Simulated assay, not measured.
Amino acid sequence: MKGQWFGEFQNPTMKGFLRIDVDETTSGFAGRAVAFGPVELTPTIVGSFDTLSQSNPIQFSVPLGPADPNTGFFMAWDDVAPRYPGTKFAKTLQVTASWDAQHLTLKWVSDIGNEGQAVLSRTTAGTESEYVQNPITWDEFKRMVAGLEPRRFVFRGQSDQKRLRTTYHRTGRADLTRYAYQDIPALHQYLSSRTRHFFNLQDPKEYGAFLHLAQHHGYPTPLLDWSFSPYVASFFAYRSSRNSQAAVAEETQRVRIYKFDKQAWQETYAEETKLDALKLHISAYEFLAIDNERMIPQQAMSILTNIDDIERYIRTRENDGTRKYLEVFDLSIRDRPSIMRELSMMGVTAGSLFPGLDGSCEELKERFF
């Protein structure tokens, strides 16, 4: 049951869109459901749950709370009545859930007697990219990026063609409310003894800088790292492989560079600042480089998101054909030795991107091994 699920729901009075984010716990499942109905008929409805077992099917109770459908801020039930006069809202659901690898089936009865149901689909984030290979030579790639508008686009290098996914969602977790109220305080307590700066998590800028610092030191976060430099992205695409692997690679084996039109996206879609925002979002940020020496040389920019399948979400926003936000370029793994050598001559090395002993040793490992 763990993971992120989407689909339509219906009850006797309306239909809408339902998202459920579920984590696996030691004894059961915990998570949050967010239901979006017609704004003229209902606020956004949010329910949290924590089951006592992992049996399939399973029954559990879900207390409900309202949120403003425009701002995403939580409301009191007393404030809902004047907005929707004459409408009676349920405060609790008794839910029966069953699932398989692809679908989550929900049926419920509310405390006011209404019944509802939904069949939700699991995200396909763990599968191969929907983007077909777009082979390009290193010289063609350099000519292409040389003609781009500076700092409009950001780039990400990957050693494979897996879909874009944050390190947090790759773990199988999905409930960012639990992450915000359990993980972050514990992480802050542990890291504060190791950082020169004490991060004030009440300040959104410092909160973002703290999250990005944790990301760069291996803790799973709902951030996806990008760079304003296509050459830094190229380094990361090739970083995890070796020249010996390149020498025996098949012609079809390629690394992938993603190019994202950050400016066009930000012109169209509003950013969210809350880690556990209710609405689905992809928000681009340049965080403060507090205690994080890697950010500046990597020309780093990050996407904050509550979406498991980032690629699918972006593609659905491109369906009208008026904007193209995301493109892919696939470089041959066989060209790794010459490309890494050229990147080194540009100053793009592990030593420059990872200041400190680790980066220096990695750079010399690349040179001598």
Rank of each mutant, 00 (worst) to 15 (best):
P220V: 01
G37C: 12
A289T: 10
F236N: 02
R178P: 02
F29Y: 15
Y313D: 10
F29P: 09
E362A: 15
R312K: 08
I112N: 15
R152I: 13
T316D: 12
Q158E: 14
N56H: 11
V145R: 07
S129L: 13
S193F: 13
G172F: 09
D291Q: 03
P337I: 05
H212Q: 04
H188G: 08
D160E: 15
E267Q: 15
Y168T: 03
Q10N: 10
W108G: 05
L148F: 13
S352T: 14
T105E: 12
Y285C: 01
Y325Q: 03
G147Y: 04
K2Y: 05
F49C: 11
D100A: 07
F236K: 01
S27L: 11
Y325L: 08
S241T: 10
Q54D: 11
G347D: 03
Y190Q: 14
D21A: 13
G359C: 07
E250P: 00
L104D: 07
R254Q: 14
N292L: 00
T127V: 07
K279T: 00
D175R: 01
D276R: 08
T195V: 10
A76E: 12
D320H: 10
D276P: 06
N114Y: 11
R317F: 04
W77S: 00
F9C: 09
R315A: 10
R323N: 14
V232W: 11
D175Q: 06
T92H: 12
L187T: 03
A186T: 12
N70R: 09
A97D: 05
A30W: 06
P43F: 01
A76G: 03
E271T: 10
A81P: 00
M75Y: 06
Y168D: 04
A209S: 15
G113A: 01
D225E: 13
E311Q: 06
A33Q: 12
R19M: 06
W138D: 00
T322W: 09
R367L: 15
A90E: 10
L364C: 01
L187I: 05
